[in-house]
């Protein structure tokens, strides 16, 4: 079985888990939550296996490299990171709601990667610019950052209903704050490693390439989210709204920038 088949199957496992989660939420059956969780865990394990299989396949082709070098591979990893953070970091009652948002998004990313004719899914050798040890660390940290911001925005939607106060033990507000902060740390590491790599490859750590500029815009928006959150001491509607603007910025940094000319055309 090829990694592509595994990833295709995982797409449907996530969709199945999403269906179960909707049934659980509508019927109010709490025990469905466990079933959704374990289905998602199974899908996640297969997803991880798919990534390792693709890695292995690239070595069999004699052009071995970590599978993080084109749009297809980045979509697969983004989807995986989002599910990882949800499974590991989200606890309690609120998990059922978060799952209902994350699972279809993860399936959509995999489906787009696997089935869209516009996404090239063949394993390609690395061009000279990508042949660097910084590739893996830069891409992994950036996408873990994106994924944490994504999960935070789901909490943001939940918290738009009303203020969440972590000091009163509101789990959604606490998890929102942690996701934003973890995302900010990963994304900062992603930007820093990217600039070290750019310095090695092109002799400039920052070149105002559209991807770099949009990464800075995203970083600034989340800096604003954190300032608002700390200033008020709670997750107000305003903070939640900022995080949704942040998500739009993340999506544009990832997808939209490809329509602007720049050096990150491969991702």
């Amino acid at each position: 079985m090829s990694s592509g088949t595994v990833i295709g199957v995982v797409t449907f496992v996530y969709l199945g888990a999403f269906f179960l989660s909707i049934v659980g939420l509508v019927s109010g059956k709490k025990e469905m939550g466990r079933l959704v969780f374990w289905t998602a865990v199974a899908g996640f394990a297969a997803h991880a296996a798919g990534i390792f299989m693709r890695w292995h396949e690239s070595y069999a082709l004699g052009i071995g490299h970590v599978p993080l070098s084109n749009f297809y591979e980045s979509l697969v990893f983004f989807s995986w990171s989002t599910v990882l953070l949800t499974l590991v970091g989200v606890r309690g009652q609120v998990r059922d709601v978060v799952m209902a948002f994350i699972l279809p998004a993860a399936a959509l990313m995999l489906g787009y990667a696997s089935f869209s004719p516009g996404v090239e899914n063949a394993i390609q050798p690395l061009i000279p610019a990508l042949k660097s040890n910084w590739l893996a660390i830069h891409v992994i940290t950036c996408f873990l950052g994106y994924a944490a911001f994504f999960v935070a925005s789901v909490f943001g939607i939940v918290l738009l209903r009303g203020d969440g106060d972590p000091s009163r033990g509101d789990p959604a507000a606490l998890m929102f704050s942690r996701c934003v902060m973890i995302g900010f740390i990963f994304f900062t590491v992603g930007i820093l490693t990217g600039s070290v790599w750019a310095q090695m490859a092109w002799g400039r750590y920052w070149g105002w390439d559209p991807k770099e500029t949009w990464a800075l815009i995203t970083w600034l928006v989340y800096a604003a989210v954190i300032h608002e959150r700390i200033k008020g001491g709670r997750v107000s509607k305003r903070v939640a709204l900022f995080s949704l603007i942040g998500l739009l910025s993340v999506l544009f940094t990832y997808f939209g920038v490809n329509y602007l000319p720049g050096l990150h055309s491969y991702l």
Binding site: R91, P166, S167, R168, G169, P171, H227, I230, K231, G233
Partner: peptide, 23 residues
């Protein structure tokens, strides 16, 4: 403010020295 879910305590302002930070 970093209270674990379920715990509660009386502290209203989680970070008094954070007021106006980079406001």
């Amino acid at each position: 403010s970093g209270t674990a879910p379920g715990e509660s305590h009386g502290e209203k302002d989680p970070a008094p020295d954070a007021q106006g930070e980079g406001g």
